[in-house]
């Protein structure tokens, strides 16, 4: 355990190589994305500038662009209710968008809970909290299935009763009430009970979006994997570390460098923390089995 205490912080090497900004580029862009989306929603109630109305479940932008959360809409469908035209159009737009850019882009670039769990993860790393209980990363798919069956049985949009994502987002816009307790509970859960517990194992919203992005063209690619020096920083920083190995270490097995696992959130932290610039955003089709020649 003493090694851990003396070990260099994640991405320290990348900071030396690329400078602080270079080693935090995608993280900063992501925070800007998350915060500006939130700001757009808040401009209405706080400043009276109504660009966007509603919340992440459904929003209406400038009186022209409807956006519907497909997971919520599907639960409602299963419960026996078809949305209105605008709701359906918004449903299609969101599905198409996340299909193109990667389903879990929602998690890393939009979802407000991401900042909470990232903060917990960061603090967990700083405090050196290790071990603790673990759950299968597949749990979320079971929960996802349960919410659909449950919605059909109860005739309610079931997950919305307790969904912390919409509770936090709605709370920030419409008044938080005691929803902050739920958010705090998730923070503490991720910090002390389970590393990456909420987003990485339990949240059915992320599970749903991962399914939308099952065949997304935009993916992270380890196309310079031959330059990898096994520093492990990408594994340490990744919110879904299991997705990296097949691509990064697949040269010998004839597996291409593109991270095809649907649970990759396209957050780009691996690009940031890699001092060798192994990773980059790319397309899933650009996936040769061997990268020995093209690498370096």
């Amino acid at each position: 355990m003493s090694q851990i205490a003396t070990k260099k912080r994640i991405g320290a090497e990348a900071v030396e190589e690329k400078g602080w900004l270079g080693a935090h580029k995608w993280l900063l862009l992501r925070r800007i994305s998350q915060l500006s989306i939130l700001a757009l929603f808040l401009l209405g109630p706080l400043a009276g500038i109504w660009i966007v109305k509603g919340n992440l479940n459904y929003s209406y932008t400038l009186g022209v662009l409807p956006l519907t959360d497909p997971y919520v809409a599907l639960q409602s469908l299963v419960a026996g209710h078809v949305p209105e035209t605008l709701g359906l159009v918004g449903f299609a737009i969101v599905l198409l968008f996340y299909f193109l850019v990667g389903g879990r882009v929602y998690c890393s670039w939009v979802c407000p809970i991401n900042m909470v769990t990232d903060a917990a993860g960061w603090l967990r790393d700083r405090l050196g909290i290790k071990g603790a209980s673990s759950l299968s990363a597949k749990t979320r798919y079971w929960i996802l299935g349960m919410t659909f069956i449950g919605s059909a049985v109860t005739g309610m949009v079931l997950w919305e009763l307790i969904n912390p994502v919409s509770m936090l987002h709605r709370g920030l816009i419409f008044g938080i009430g005691t929803a902050w307790m739920v958010v705090l509970a998730i923070f503490l859960f991720d910090l002390f009970v389970m590393s990456r517990g909420w987003c990485g194992r339990l949240c059915p919203v992320g599970a749903f979006y991962s399914l939308i992005g099952r065949w997304s063209p935009v993916r992270i690619s380890a196309n310079k994997r031959s330059a990898c020096n096994d520093c492990m920083d990408c594994f340490e920083v990744c919110p879904e570390p299991q997705v990296i190995r097949p691509a990064l270490k697949g040269e010998g097995k004839g597996v291409g460098p593109v991270i095809l696992a649907p649970n990759c959130t396209n957050c780009g932290r691996c690009i940031d923390v890699c001092s060798k610039d192994v990773f980059t955003y790319g397309l899933r089709f650009n996936n040769p089995a061997s990268t020995e020649k093209s690498g370096t």
């Binding site: 509603g54 919340n55 479940n57 459904y58 409602s76 209710h81 005739g155 709605r170 419409f174 739920v182």
Partner: peptide, 29 residues
């Protein structure tokens, strides 16, 4: 019963009410 299956909790009705009559239920309500 039907309302809870159809409502997606977006708050658009709250926003478009000119008299601030409506509110969205908080977890403690």
């Amino acid at each position: 019963d039907d309302f809870l299956g159809a409502c997606i909790r977006c708050g658009l009705c709250v926003r478009d009410c000119p008299y601030n009559t409506l509110e969205l239920a908080k977890p403690e309500h």
